[in-house]
Amino acid sequence: MSQSLDIIHDEHRALAAMLSSLRSLAGAIAAGRLKPDFGLFADMLRYIEEVPEKLHHPKETDYLFARLRPRCPEAEPVIARLVEEHHQGEARMAVLKDALEAYRTRGEAGFEGFNSALLHYIDQEWKHMNTEEKQIFPLARQHLTAADWAEIDAAFLANDNPWQGAAGEYAALFTRIVNEAPAPVGLGG
């Protein structure tokens, strides 16, 4: 197996953990067990926007998908859909951030709109990651050559830990999120 597929899978797991945490926090608010922490929600959305949307997706598009396209023409419709989803990421994140701001501004009356936007975003991301792992990964393993993998792996290994970012910025953000989020999502009170 290529190192780059391991990196993508690890990045998917990290994103899945953040998405699950968001869902858990929103669920606890809906059940009346938590009060909203808008700063925490904003940090979590910033993390998703900065790491998966701006670092992870471009690597998939520019390296994995670009090498697979000529080797496996039957993958083109799936790749085209995934690339389009990557391009829609900024707009989808803007909808979610706007819903959070409306919730912050309107109070409890804004929760349903935020929760709906959040659940829609989470659902789209799960489908996206599952498509990559269940459809693209097997095709890549089957059709890409050793030279393809060497090129893809070199690109991914050049930035193999985007979760830490420049000077540990994303590691610090992640640590702050974990420390602020209440149990069982994080370590906060």
Results as ranks from 00 to 15, higher is better:
residue 18 M to S: 06
residue 18 M to L: 08
residue 18 M to I: 03
residue 22 L to P: 07
residue 22 L to T: 01
residue 24 S to Q: 14
residue 24 S to G: 09
residue 25 L to R: 05
residue 27 G to Y: 12
residue 28 A to P: 12
residue 28 A to Y: 10
residue 29 I to N: 05
residue 30 A to D: 12
residue 30 A to E: 11
residue 31 A to P: 10
residue 32 G to T: 10
residue 33 R to G: 14
residue 34 L to A: 10
residue 38 F to D: 02
residue 40 L to H: 09
residue 41 F to V: 00
residue 43 D to P: 12
residue 43 D to V: 14
residue 44 M to E: 00
residue 44 M to F: 12
residue 45 L to Y: 06
residue 46 R to T: 15
residue 48 I to T: 14
residue 51 V to E: 03
residue 51 V to C: 07
residue 52 P to I: 06
residue 53 E to N: 03
residue 57 H to K: 06
residue 57 H to E: 01
residue 58 P to T: 06
residue 60 E to A: 03
residue 61 T to Y: 07
residue 61 T to N: 11
residue 62 D to N: 14
residue 62 D to Q: 14
residue 62 D to I: 04
residue 63 Y to E: 07
residue 63 Y to R: 12
residue 64 L to F: 00
residue 65 F to D: 05
residue 66 A to K: 08
residue 66 A to W: 08
residue 67 R to Q: 08
residue 67 R to T: 13
residue 67 R to M: 10
residue 67 R to D: 12
residue 68 L to V: 02
residue 69 R to H: 00
residue 70 P to T: 05
residue 71 R to Q: 02
residue 71 R to D: 00
residue 73 P to V: 00
residue 74 E to F: 02
residue 75 A to C: 14
residue 76 E to V: 03
residue 77 P to N: 01
residue 77 P to D: 01
residue 78 V to H: 07
residue 79 I to G: 04
residue 79 I to V: 01
residue 80 A to Q: 04
residue 81 R to Y: 12
residue 82 L to P: 08
residue 83 V to I: 10
residue 83 V to R: 01
residue 83 V to F: 06
residue 84 E to W: 07
residue 86 H to S: 14
residue 86 H to E: 11
residue 86 H to R: 05
residue 86 H to N: 12
residue 87 H to C: 15
residue 88 Q to I: 10
residue 90 E to Q: 09
residue 93 M to G: 08
residue 93 M to Q: 10
residue 93 M to P: 09
residue 94 A to W: 13
residue 97 K to P: 14
residue 97 K to N: 14
residue 99 A to T: 10
residue 99 A to K: 02
residue 99 A to E: 05
residue 100 L to R: 04
residue 101 E to Q: 06
residue 103 Y to H: 05
residue 103 Y to N: 02
residue 103 Y to V: 03
residue 104 R to G: 01
residue 104 R to C: 03
residue 104 R to I: 04
residue 105 T to V: 13
residue 105 T to I: 11
residue 105 T to G: 06
residue 106 R to D: 04
residue 106 R to V: 01
residue 106 R to Y: 02
residue 106 R to A: 02
residue 106 R to Q: 04
residue 108 E to D: 13
residue 108 E to R: 09
residue 109 A to D: 01
residue 109 A to S: 03
residue 109 A to C: 04
residue 109 A to M: 01
residue 111 F to W: 07
residue 112 E to F: 11
residue 112 E to W: 14
residue 112 E to T: 15
residue 115 N to G: 09
residue 115 N to Q: 11
